[in-house]
């Protein structure tokens, strides 16, 4: 999945259209593709897309046509030339230096980078917690720079609320996100009973049956991460941001969880941006890998991962896999040496 050459230009046009026209044009252009809505859209439009989003988030086959079937679909996430720097003791400390990346609809994209490369800053930009000094963030062709509530998020620690049962934790995303993603007053979030039934069904299918009423501390680390993933999956937003989700797990649980994530994702292709320090994990799971440079971060290389889906575990033995793994490791090593020399 290549980046369309005209993409930044297209985005730039959208940037100048008033929000109303923008929405209408985008709905017609993409007829049946699920979307999350920004706040303050006309209620009729958002009602339509809300139901679509819900259907799409749940139906297992909607992605088979998605992203692949329609040629000029705007990407789920398009970050264009983002610059961020912080002030530290009156010195300007650049963190992101012209970083650009794209996640197509239904695509699984991984980011690998040296630790401390400004990845949490990048995530805060995408989440809308930070506004970049320069550059824009587009989602589905709409400018969302500095706007919150357009992504569903799975953090590094499960961050489940200890006073909520597992099913209540899983439903949290819907409670919070529905208000943020569908701010129009005419759109009500799904009724609680419906959301609960849905949550229970999903909990059963990810191996957490019998733990619906358990509290997070009663679960193992891997189970907690599954619940946290489910919380992100049941968010109405289309783009999922997975922030080193398996880094706190032991090696065995980790590979188990990777397999589990692959299975779930391949049935239910959402657009995913996955950050990790583990090169093998990135290659195993994703369609494309971005290799980030050291601070200030920019995209150093982009690697296509051409293996068939559903992915088999054996691909980790294939020469093409090993070649890419070696190459990325080499790049990261060089990058680390560069910092060491510059110090």
């Amino acid at each position: 999945m290549k980046r369309y050459p005209n993409e930044p230009v297209q985005s730039a046009q959208v940037r100048n259209t008033p929000p109303g026209d923008d929405d209408a044009a985008y709905i017609t252009a993409q007829s049946s593709i699920a979307e999350s809505e920004p706040p303050a859209v006309p209620s009729s439009v958002s009602t339509l897309t809300h139901s679509e989003a819900t259907d799409a988030a749940l139906s297992l086959d909607h992605n088979k046509t998605n992203g692949l079937g329609y040629a000029p679909v705007s990407p789920a996430l398009d970050i264009i030339d983002v610059h961020v720097s912080f002030k530290e003791r009156r010195r300007k400390l650049p963190v992101l230096n012209g970083l650009s990346l794209t996640v197509e609809k239904g695509e699984f994209v991984a980011i690998v980078g040296p630790s401390g490369c400004g990845k949490s800053t990048l995530f805060h930009i995408i989440g809308g917690l930070l506004k970049p000094q320069d550059g824009e963030v587009f989602m589905n062709g709409k400018r969302v720079t500095g706007q919150r509530g357009h992504i569903s998020y799975m953090p590094q620690q499960p961050a489940l609320f200890p006073w909520r049962t597992i099913e209540e934790n899983v439903m949290l995303a819907g409670e919070v996100a529905s208000a943020a993603a569908f701010a129009a007053p005419s759109v009500q979030p799904a009724p609680r009973a419906e959301a609960l039934a849905e949550a229970r069904q999903w909990l059963g299918s990810v191996g957490l049956a019998g733990f619906e009423r358990a509290y997070p501390h009663q679960l193992s680390g891997g189970m907690q991460q599954r619940a946290a993933f489910l919380r992100a999956l049941l968010s109405p937003q289309e783009l999922m941001l997975l922030d080193e989700p398996f880094s706190a797990l032991d090696a065995l649980t980790r590979s188990d969880m990777q397999r589990w994530l692959l299975d779930i994702w391949e049935q239910n292709r959402r657009s995913v941006l996955f950050i990790t320090h583990n090169i093998e994990e990135a290659l195993l799971l994703s369609d494309r890998v971005y290799v980030l440079s050291n601070r200030p971060a920019a995209v150093l290389h982009e690697v296509e991962v051409p293996f068939d889906r559903p992915r088999r575990d054996e691909i980790t033995e294939e020469p093409a896999f090993l070649e890419r793994k070696r190459q990325i490791a080499q790049w990261m090593k060089e990058e680390q040496q560069k910092t060491r020399l510059s110090r």
Binding site: F123, H124, G127, G128, L129, R148, G149, H150, I151, S152, Y153, P155, Q156, Q157, A159, F161, A173, V176, A177, A179, A180, A181, S235, Q237, L241
Partner: peptide, 12 residues
């Protein structure tokens, strides 16, 4: 971590 989750998820 919980606060970061809520903010990233777009909670008001």
């Amino acid at each position: 971590a919980m606060m970061n989750y809520m903010r990233m998820a777009g909670a008001k």
